[in-house]
């Protein structure tokens, strides 16, 4: 079966550019004619993941695989890792710095939102090594 692979590098430290990758991905998903709801959920997850990578991990890479049944988004960074995943999953919990907060980020809704809008979310993290968040969104047949 056909699988599309899209790779987007996410620059660290540049909150202004954050959101570029999700925007580009969205355009491609639209051209594929995927259901609007799937596109919306995928781009929200991607956007939140991008912001996370910029704020916490000095960037990383987002990889998107589009298959006929699902979209898999893998966001990998080599940042500090998440010491307590359960805590990080709580709404409102954030370790974002003051710059990010001034720009309106750091509300502690990133990971919870990604969980809410995806069908499956796997967080693979190791303190000091980095984090890979994998999101799956099913395409209704």
């Amino acid at each position: 079966m056909e699988t599309i692979r899209l790779v987007y590098p996410v620059e660290g430290g540049d909150l202004i550019e954050a959101g570029e990758a999700s925007s580009k991905m969205k355009l491609t998903l639209k051209k594929l004619g995927l259901p609007q709801d799937v596109i919306r959920r995928a781009s929200i997850c991607m956007y939140e993941g991008e912001i996370n990578m910029v704020i916490h991990a000095d960037g990383g890479q987002a990889e998107v695989e589009v298959e006929p049944e699902q979209i898999v988004i893998r966001m990998a960074d080599t940042g500090p890792g998440i010491p307590d995943v359960e805590q990080a999953m709580q709404e409102g919990y954030s370790t974002a710095g003051s710059t990010a907060r001034e720009l309106g980020f750091g509300a502690g809704m990133g990971l919870p939102n990604m969980k809410r809008y995806s069908d499956e979310m796997i967080i693979d993290t190791e303190v000091g090594k980095g984090t890979t968040v994998t999101i799956k969104i099913k395409i209704p047949q």
């Binding site: 079966m1 056909e2 599309i4 491609t28 051209k31 594929l32 589009v66 006929p68 395409i139």
Partner: peptide, 8 residues
């Protein structure tokens, strides 16, 4: 969708 994926 299959054809679109192939074209993409």
């Amino acid at each position: 969708l299959g054809a679109a994926l192939n074209k993409q």
